[in-house]
Design a protein around this nucleic acid. Structure first.
Length: 496
RNA sequence: GGAGAGGUGGCAGAGCGGUUGAAUGCGCCGGUCUCGAAAACCGGUAUGGCCUUUUGGUCAUCGGGGGUUCGAAUCCCCCCCUCUCCGCCA
């Protein structure tokens, strides 16, 4: 949530921010409602002050009269009762006026709140302006020795690559048919060494963050209250993306939601708390199962492990004092962790500076990491082999960007595919979550300040298995397990 | 799942229709005393909003929401959470 005061002071900054983010939000309406709301509540507040004053006076008087009433007889009673009624009449009028204002305020509040929750955080001035992911700007790319991203996979390795779909079929690592039988479309089963590889990546990613970078591991709920979804900024905008557990429909409890990322619970941990500045920054990581409805993605990436309803993800989150420099520095650090992680797995990747149109409401800045997927961006020719829908063109949807290799050969193209996303949010999330710290430490008298937060993926599997299998495949159809994972695979060096 | 007890300030804990934003203790901050420290004593110590140039004023908040009342931490309703006992169980 943005700071309403800041919006009053400089509405143009937020109008421009929304424009750059390609977001349609009626800021003038918000200002209008805000002004009206403040007028009404100021007036109401004055009435309440008067009411409180009267009440304090009347309390003892009425108490005394009621005492008399008990002892009084017949005629006296009537006189006393009338006196009490008279006393009550004054505040009664105030009460009616207050209630009327209450009604007026209640009328505008939901709309005000709804708009306020949707006003995006303005992007930082150095974020390139653009409309969609097409306008994202590559920052740098990395590739392991012996693999040249400027050349085709074939030219690098001397053979034509298989897609991960073919590989998991042939090596018996996944079972899509039974996944769909169990959970419907976009479900899958990882089996045997496929499952083992999945867990190996997750455990390695977790240890990487804990042991190398001192992050605190957490095991957190994936079922959360609506507050948490709103507080972390996923609602109301992303309501369609979350699975909704409608407990109230069975007449009990409150509705709950399945989280689409560990970020929700990691950030929600300290909701409503005032933290000790000495404890900051808090650095947390978690492995959690993530659930996404993929609403609006019908027909996209229907085959394979790319876009699915359920996956596991190691997520990193940092909560720090409010400081732009710190925020920027940590953003780079968190990206650095991911780069080192991918390099240790010998997975070529690139960093993409997301443009303003691709940021989402809560980010001031966002940098995506995309891994090179040699089997991606290929036409139906190959996908056909796995018995899946032959009409789709896997390379043309958002989230994947065609390699700039310039080859016309459809069977050997390859593409980058998004595997990580590093967000910098300033106080947008912490303001919603009411998560603060006291300046100058625990015993200080400093003001309470909203924390800043950042988050980034460490590894999301099975999506990360796509480059892992495709990059490390061998000509004989086997896949070499990168050295970093062997310890988590019982020493297995090669699959198949 | 059944029965009961409870949720109050940083913590513990009183209050159970009016003068209570809230006793008291602990903690914390400042001061007195002291060469210094401790002890003792004195004073201070919630969060948010709105109005105000400063000073200050005012409203809201006693798990959350709604209601009764001139007036609610206190009464009523719904929900959430915690604890105890019984039952069941990974």
């Amino acid at each position: 949530m943005i700071d309403l005061k800041a919006l009053r002071d400089d509405p143009e900054r937020f109008r421009e921010g929304a424009r750059r983010k390609n977001t349609d939000v009626d800021i003038d309406r918000l200002l209008e409602l805000d002004t009206r709301q403040r007028e009404l509540s100021t007036r109401q507040q004055e009435l309440k002050a008067e009411q409180n004053r009267l009440s304090k006076e009347m309390g003892p008087q009425i108490g005394r009269l009621i005492g008399q009433l008990k002892k009084a007889s017949g005629e006296q009673r009537g006189a006393i009762e009338r006196e009490v009624e008279q006393l009550k009449a004054g505040p009664q009028k105030l009460k009616e006026q207050i209630e009327e204002l209450d009604g007026q305020i209640a009328e505008i509040e939901p709309e005000l709140r709804e708009i306020l929750l949707r006003v995006p955080l303005p992007p930082d001035p150095d974020v390139p302006v653009g409309r969609s992911s097409e306008d994202n700007v590559e920052i740098r790319r990395w590739s392991s020795a012996g693999f040249d991203l400027a050349r085709l996979f074939e030219d690098n390795k001397g053979f034509s690559p298989k897609s991960h779909i073919e590989l998991v079929h042939e090596l018996g690592l996944a079972d899509f048919e039974r996944g769909v039988k169990l959970g419907g479309a976009r479900h899958y089963v990882l089996k045997g060494l496929g499952a083992r590889l999945h867990y190996a990546v997750l455990r390695y990613a977790m240890d990487f963050m804990i042991q190398k970078h001192g992050f605190t591991p957490m095991s957190v709920p994936v079922i959360v209250r609506e507050d948490m979804m709103v507080g972390t900024g996923f609602f109301p905008g992303g309501r369609d993306q979350a699975y909704h557990i409608e407990e109230t429909r069975r007449g009990a409890g409150e509705d709950l939601f399945l989280t689409g990322t560990g970020e929700v619970s990691l950030m929600g941990l300290h909701q409503g708390e005032i933290l000790d500045e000495a404890d900051l920054p808090l650095t947390y990581c978690t492995t959690s199962t993530c659930f996404r409805r993929e609403a609006g993605a019908a027909g996209k990436d229907t085959a394979g492990l790319y876009r699915i309803h359920q996956f596991d993800k190691v997520e990193q989150v940092v909560i720090l004092p409010a400081d732009e420099g710190e925020s920027r520095a940590w953003h780079q650090k968190m990206l650095g962790f991911v780069e080192a992680f991918l390099q240790s797995l010998e997975l070529p990747y690139r960093l993409l500076q997301c443009c303003t149109g691709d940021l989402g409401a809560k980010n001031a800045d966002m940098i995506d990491v995309e891994c090179w997927m040699p089997g991606r961006g290929r036409s139906a020719l190959r996908a056909d082999a796995s018995g899946n829908d032959a009409k789709q063109d896997i390379g043309s949807e958002s989230g994947a960007t065609q390699g700039d290799i310039g080859s016309e050969s459809r069977s050997t193209l390859g593409a980058f595919g998004e595997t990580h996303s590093a967000s910098r949010l300033y106080d947008y999330q912490c303001r919603r979550l009411n998560m603060r710290y006291r300046e100058g430490g625990e015993s200080g008298k400093g003001a309470t300040v909203f924390c800043h937060s950042l988050n980034n993926t460490v590894a999301a599997s099975p999506r990360i298995l796509i480059p892992l299998l495709e990059i490390h495949q061998n000509e004989d159809g086997s896949v070499t397990v990168p050295g970093a994972l062997r310890g988590y695979m019982g020493g297995i060096e090669r699959i198949g």
